[in-house]
Each structure stands twice: as C-alpha cells, then as structure tokens.
C-alpha cells in the first residue's frame, strides 16, 4: 500500500510533466513510476495513510491562502528593511518550541517559518527549533513561540496532527 501511494503520486507528476499525451509516454511513465516505487518505497513518509484523508487535504487547501498572506507580508517587510538607509535590523538566534509530533509536519513548519517575516530556521532538535530572527522582540522560549510558531501551528495541527 505504501508503494502504491508512491507509485500513484509519481505517475501523476510524470503525466503533468509530459502533457501533450500519447500512448508511448504513458507506457514509459508507468514503468518509470514502477521502478521508483520499488526502489524508494521504504523511504517514503511513515504515515502514508494520511495522504488519502479528504479532511486533511481540505485543511491543507485552507492553509495555502493563510501562508500566501504571510509570504507577501514578509516580502514587504524585508523590502522596507533593505531600502531604509539606516538598515533597521536587530538580529539574533532564538529557541522556540513546537507541539507538532510527525516529522513531515515539522519540516513543513520549518519551511513556512523560513518564508515568513524576518525568521529563518537554523536547526531542529527534538521539539525545539532554533530560529534566526531579524528583529528580536524577546529571547524567552514561550514568548518567542507565541509570536512565530502559533499562527501556523493551529492549521498544521489539523493537517498533520
């Protein structure tokens, strides 16, 4: 079942990549996806059954506009700091705590943190993430978690929780 999930996903990506479809590429893609599934099936995500849950996919679709909003906000913020003649930055590395358990959830959270206002994830260790912050407001663990992590966590808990 795990291999079938991987086969399905790689076959769909193949079809999108070769789009003017004909029979030859469809058959070739079938074998390529089969080889990929047999070789790398073991190293696929551990909770593969969650990929078939409709409600998790729905919450992921809800997450996308929220993420886009923060992404554009982040860029306007960085643009202001870059163009300001005095360079108003106040950098430092802080430590935050996350409640997410699954590994794929944590990696999505880290990627989101990297693309949002003034933060860049440096390392992850257990349930703590080290974050380089362009404008440090507090170096306390709880306060920093409240500012950075919580706005994504409540959606990602529903997707990966």
């Amino acid at each position: 079942m795990k291999r079938f999930t991987l086969f399905f996903i790689s076959y769909i990506i193949w079809i999108l990549l070769v789009l003017p479809l004909d029979l030859q590429t469809l058959i070739l893609g079938f074998f390529v996806a089969l080889i990929v599934a047999l070789l790398f099936g073991k190293e696929f995500v551990e909770n593969y059954k969650r990929l078939w849950h409709i409600d998790r996919l729905f919450w992921f679709l809800v997450y996308i506009p929220v993420f886009t909003y923060y992404l554009i906000l982040a860029n306007l913020d960085v643009m202001y700091r870059v163009l300001h003649p005095d360079l108003p930055i106040n950098p430092g590395i802080v430590k935050v705590k996350t409640k997410l358990k699954s590994r794929s959830g944590r990696s999505v959270l880290c990627n989101s943190i990297t693309l949002t206002p003034g933060t860049l994830s440096v390392d992850i260790e257990g349930e703590y993430i080290y974050i380089h912050w362009l404008n440090v407001k507090s170096d306390d663990v709880d306060l920093a978690s409240k500012g950075i992590v919580e706005k994504f966590e409540k959606y990602l808990m529903k997707v990966f929780g």
Partner: peptide
C-alpha cells in the same frame, strides 16, 4: 546586509 544570515533571509524570501 551585514552578515551571512541576514543576507540569506533577505535574498531567499524576495
């Protein structure tokens, strides 16, 4: 930007 981490932030996002 003054150091590697700030450069990484500005460049990657934009």
């Amino acid at each position: 930007m003054p150091d590697v981490y700030c450069r990484l932030q500005a460049a990657t996002k934009c």
